[in-house]
Design a protein around this nucleic acid. Structure first.
Length: 480
DNA sequence: GTAACGATACGGCATCGGTG
DNA sequence: CACCGATGCCGTATCGTTAC
């Protein structure tokens, strides 16, 4: 904090955005290029951070406030987006290269709400008031919590940060796709920064405490998949199903839906069975029409075992929950590893153009075959670069590549088939379940991103068939 | 064995923002 | 403004694999 105070004193004429960035990066960003700085901090290179500012496609890396402010005030330079967190490398904007977690930023796509209503969301979620709010061109808001003390971005810290942010996003009703440590957001400007309270900075511990109270941590559920699903059992619609009288004719479906929701919420099977037993005893109609088999407690509990045993069940259908409960219900999946695409931001890079060219070509031709040299020539791309993009696209699961070596060798490239394995996959979360240990990435799993209000799949990602150390991509689509 | 291909390793070069 | 250090791009050489 002492450093921040010092900054405030030395820059009395900061603009609001500059003050924001000073606060955000203050503790661990050098003031000016090295020649102006004290020897003490200059030698401490392990703490410095690089941050990125620029457009969606290309961002500049910056390490000093003087440079940052210069870039921000230069109308020639695109500065639409920035990274709230800092990196130890200036050339790789990967989660793995993060050094400091400086803030949480939430993308609130709530058009028409006033700033007062936005602040009420924070109050209602039991969260403190944010440090800043900016208005985005689409009419939404980006709200930021600047940490009073940046958190070193260790693997564990990033995982905790993401998990807590996921809970906060759900409770705030913000875009869960914007959850993660390696995200870019709209750069605050004099015009869009409509709320800025520099004193509203909080220690990361504040958010850990909030999470412990509002979303108790269960070691069994500590895997990645909590983040995909959230705990949907906490949703009022499912609470309603669990606690309200259930009539004949709906018992089967309600029991199944509850079991699915429990599975999707990572409940242990025993807990699900116990809950369904309680549900049967206190809520479920016990009658049966003449000649029909009665619905028994055993049937209810059996549903849990059935659902938990079978890998083909993943999560309940949102529209069934809406129908059974009569309450609005939707949920959105998100991927805690974004579709892996290490997007570095290099001036000379043509790889992404070729990558886009290849994908565009595949959309029209469905399948490309030939020697790699032929295909590379066709794309007007060097052979080595063609191999690089092929390797990356294959690792991401965005194309299927078959190669035949030797004489008459051939490379066939095509787009992966959309998954058809689940009925009504529009609201099914495919998440590989209990058999996978949380620390190991799941191979060949697909994540369906669905908008359950519009009832459509928005995107399908295949988790990269790669090692844990595979760099995580920065966000493919920054929010407005 | 040989031709023709894919896979891999290596080195020259360009480029970046920072440095002094 | 020349230089630094790190890194990506890309051509080339070489090795491995396969059909003939």
């Amino acid at each position: 904090m002492t450093q921040i105070v010092a900054i405030d004193q030395s820059f009395t004429s900061l603009t609001k955005p500059e003050a924001f960035f000073s606060l955000l990066y203050g503790a661990y960003m050098i003031e000016r290029p090295k020649r102006f700085r004290s020897k003490l901090s200059a030698s401490n290179n392990n703490d410095r951070q690089w941050v990125f500012v620029g457009g969606k496609e290309r961002m500049k890396s910056l390490a000093s406030k003087a440079t940052l402010f210069a870039v921000l005030s230069d109308p020639e330079v695109e500065t639409t987006y920035y990274t709230p967190n800092g990196y130890y490398r200036r050339d790789l904007r990967w989660t793995e290269s993060l050094r400091w977690l400086n803030a949480f930023v939430f993308d609130l796509d709530i058009i028409g709400e006033t700033i007062v209503e936005v602040l009420e969301r924070f109050d209602n979620a039991g969260l403190p008031r944010p440090t800043s709010i900016i208005k985005t061109p689409s009419g939404g808001y980006h709200a930021t919590y600047v940490f009073s003390k940046p958190v070193r971005a260790t693997t564990k810290a990033i995982r905790l940060y993401t998990a807590i942010m996921g809970h906060m996003a759900v409770d705030l009703g913000s875009d869960t796709a914007a959850v993660g440590a390696n995200r870019i957001f709209r750069t605050p400007t004099e015009q869009n920064l409509i709320y800025f309270e520099p004193s509203n900075c909080y220690d990361f511990e504040v958010f850990k405490t909030w999470r412990d109270i509002n979303h108790p941590y269960e070691p069994d559920n500590a895997g990645f998949f909590n983040i995909h699903t959230g705990n949907i059992m906490n949703h009022p619609a499912l609470q309603y199903l669990l606690e309200s009288p259930c009539q004949e004719g709906r018992r089967e479906q309600t029991a199944l839906t509850l079991a699915l929701a429990m599975k999707a919420s990572d409940w242990p099977q025993e807990r699900a069975e116990a809950a369904l037993r309680d549900w049967f005893i206190s809520c479920c109609s016990k009658g049966a029409q003449a000649g029909k088999k009665p619905f028994t407690q055993r049937d209810a509990v059996y549903k849990a075992g059935y659902v938990f045993r079978s890998p083909k069940f993943h999560a309940p259908k949102a529209d069934v929950i809406r129908e059974l409960s009569g309450l609005p219900f939707f949920y959105q999946t998100r991927n805690c590893w974004e579709s892996a695409k290490p997007r570095s931001d290099r001036e000379r890079s043509h790889l992404f153009e070729w990558e886009a060219d290849l994908l565009a070509l595949l959309k029209t031709e469905k399948e490309l075959s030939g020697t790699q040299q032929e295909l590379a020539t066709r794309l007007n791309c060097p052979l080595t670069s063609f191999k690089a993009i092929l390797c990356r696209l294959r690792a991401d699961g965005r194309v299927i590549v078959e190669t035949r070596r030797g004489r008459g060798g051939l490379t066939v490239v095509r787009l992966p088939e959309p998954p058809l394995n689940e009925p009504a996959s529009d609201n099914v979360i495919v998440f590989p379940l209990a058999e996978a240990t949380p620390s190991v990435p799941i191979r060949d799993a697909e994540i369906i991103h669905a908008d359950f209000q519009l009832k459509r799949v928005t995107r399908i990602d295949r988790l990269p068939a790669a090692e844990v150390s595979e760099p995580e991509a920065p966000d493919p689509e920054p929010p407005d």
